[in-house]
């Protein structure tokens, strides 16, 4: 029996692979950034899946989960806190990449990565 976490983890790994494939084979800068953001989502899914435990619920204490049961009923909160950070930084990185892509397009009037040859060795 495959657990939810394993299923999600496999999906996350495949998403990372798809994203990497896209980033490596595309030549359009924007497409590479799209591929990166997919890989980003995959990484986040994998980390959250590691923290998941079968039959437990979200680490928020309310009427459904009283304080006394917390240890027995909630899942690991640490990966969630990590992913929270990762998502926010991810959008920052994406915005930075987009700004550079925009600037590069302004210079060269193209998004084709093969035309940017100044630093090629």
């Amino acid at each position: 029996m495959i657990s939810l976490a394993q299923m999600a983890m496999a999906t996350g790994f495949i998403l990372i692979l798809i994203g990497f494939y896209g980033a490596l084979t595309q030549r359009n800068l924007l497409r590479m950034i799209v591929a990166f953001s997919i890989a980003d989502a995959g990484v986040n899914i994998v980390i959250v899946a590691i923290g998941h435990m079968r039959g437990r619920t979200a680490p928020i204490i309310d009427a459904a989960v009283p304080v006394a049961d917390a240890v027995a009923r909630v899942i690991d909160p640490v990966p969630q806190a990590l992913v929270l950070t990762a998502i926010v930084i991810g959008v920052g990185v994406t915005a930075l990449m987009l700004a550079y892509a925009l600037k590069l397009h302004e210079r060269k009037r193209t998004l084709d990565i093969a035309r940017f040859t100044e630093l090629k060795w």
Binding site: I61, V78, A81, L84
Partner: peptide, 9 residues
């Protein structure tokens, strides 16, 4: 805090 993730963050 009721939300443990918030407490950590």
């Amino acid at each position: 805090a009721a939300n443990i993730v918030t407490a950590i963050v």
